[in-house]
Each structure stands twice: as structure tokens, then as C-alpha cells.
Write a protein that binds this DNA or RNA. Structure first.
Length: 222
DNA sequence: ACCCAGGTGGCCC
DNA sequence: GGGCCACATGGG
């Protein structure tokens, strides 16, 4: 069963051996990572890079700056990342909330993780995945991020059928992976790397690392 | 021309 | 509490 396959770090070791350690989320500052997390929603990172480049060129790549940006200007800068009208509005709202209530990201992040997560989720434009991406990569909290890649990989391992919700998937992974920040960051990065290179087609290709643990013979749910 | 990408919020039942 | 749908650009 899945538990056994993930437990003992077998899955992680397998991926890690294939891809090497990935120091993942591109971005130099906490601000940049948070902003990128919002912009990348259902959007390829390539497009987000263009938006971030525009923001950087205009010296607007900070929570504080965006909190009082003009919407039309913000829209034009983030246009390449798609949904630019929605994202401009929501991103500004998020930045305004943080600066108005906490001043700085460091201050905002210095709360208990559960409270911080709930607060992130209460903001328009931040759902579970974005909240956890921010918690993990911007705030540095050991929270497992569940994204489309992770979901697909786990479904491959499971045997495709049992569709799990976000929190079920997260509980499952967090329950079987030691809560270590570097490990969580890298594990998620491994899932992304896996998804980008393999696991795209229905039958796994011969080179897919998952073949080592996924023989499609025992897809039973506990 | 179609399908997808590191989702989310608003409706509806 | 789940099933649709709009949101928008850029690349295969």
C-alpha cells in the first residue's frame, strides 16, 4: 500500500537518486516568493517569470510596494502570468492586508503555523496550495505542499482510482514524512521534477522512477 | 485549432 | 460538502 511505499523514505530516496537535491523555489526574497506563489496559480512558471521580471524592473517586487500600487499599472506588469485582472486585485489586497496589520512579512510570519495558515486562507486569492507554498517556501514552515504534480504522482502510486482531497493527501504525506524543512522543500520539488519529466502518459514509460515502486499489482486502499 | 499550466472564488444543488 | 464555471496568457 501507499504507506509502505512512502514510509522509510523509499519514494524520496528513489526520486532524490534520480534528480539530485533540488534547491527549488526560485526567488531571492520572501516577498518575491510570496508574490510568485500567487502569480503561478494555474499558470506555467515561464509566464510568471516574465511578470516578476516586469515587477523587478519597475522596482515593485515587494509586499509594501504592491500594497499601494495602482491597479492598471499592476495589471500591465503581471499580464503575462494570466488572469491578470483577478490577480492584480487579489495580490494587492493580500499585500495591503499584511502591511496594514503586521507591517512586515517577518512580523506576519512570526505566529503559530496553524493560525498563520488560517489567516492566509481567509484572504481572497489564497487557497490551500498557495497558503502552503507560502508557508513552506516563504515563511519556512515545514508544511507539505500538495499540487497537481504531487496529486498525479500519488495517484499513479495508488493506482489511479481513489481520488483524495487536499487535506487527506496532505495528512497522508505529513504522516509519513518527518517534518523537516529542507526535506519538505526538496520532496515537493522532486514531485514537480518527476511530473515535468515523467508520469505524463497513462502507462508509465520505462524510465519513470515510479516503476520501481509501482507495479500496478496491489492498488488496495487501507 | 485545441489543450495545458506549480488554483481560486462564486454559484448552485 | 461536492460539482461546475469564469478567469487569461503563452507554449506545445
Amino acid at each position: 500500500m501507499l504507506h509502505d511505499r512512502i514510509q522509510g523514505g523509499r519514494l524520496y530516496k528513489l526520486l532524490r537518486d534520480r534528480f539530485g537535491f533540488l534547491n527549488w523555489w526560485p526567488g531571492d526574497t520572501r516577498d518575491e516568493i510570496l508574490i510568485g506563489a500567487v502569480l503561478t496559480q494555474n499558470t506555467s512558471w515561464k509566464n510568471v517569470e516574465k511578470a516578476i521580471k516586469n515587477l523587478k524592473a519597475a522596482d515593485m517586487l515587494s509586499i509594501e510596494k504592491i500594497s499601494h500600487a495602482r491597479i492598471p499599472q499592476l495589471q500591465s506588469m503581471i499580464r503575462p502570468s494570466g488572469y491578470y485582472r483577478q490577480k492584480a486585485q487579489r495580490l494587492k489586497g493580500i499585500c495591503k492586508y499584511i502591511t496594514a496589520n503586521y507591517g512586515t512579512l517577518n512580523c506576519f510570519f512570526s505566529q503559530d503555523t496553524p493560525k498563520l495558515r488560517a489567516e492566509l486562507l481567509s484572504l481572497s486569492g489564497i487557497g490551500p496550495e498557495t497558503a502552503d507554498s507560502i508557508l513552506l517556501y516563504s515563511a519556512g514552515k515545514p508544511v507539505f505542499v500538495i499540487d497537481a504534480y504531487t496529486r498525479r504522482a500519488v495517484q499513479r502510486i495508488y493506482g489511479e482510482k481513489h481520488e483524495m482531497g487536499y487535506s487527506d493527501l496532505q495528512s497522508l504525506l505529513q504522516g509519513h514524512v518527518p517534518a523537516d524543512l529542507r526535506l519538505y522543500k526538496d520532496f515537493h520539488a522532486q514531485f514537480v521534477e518527476l511530473g515535468k519529466n515523467y508520469c505524463k502518459k497513462k502507462p508509465l514509460c520505462g524510465a519513470c522512477p515510479l516503476r520501481q515502486i509501482c507495479n500496478y499489482a496491489t492498488p488496495q486502499i487501507p
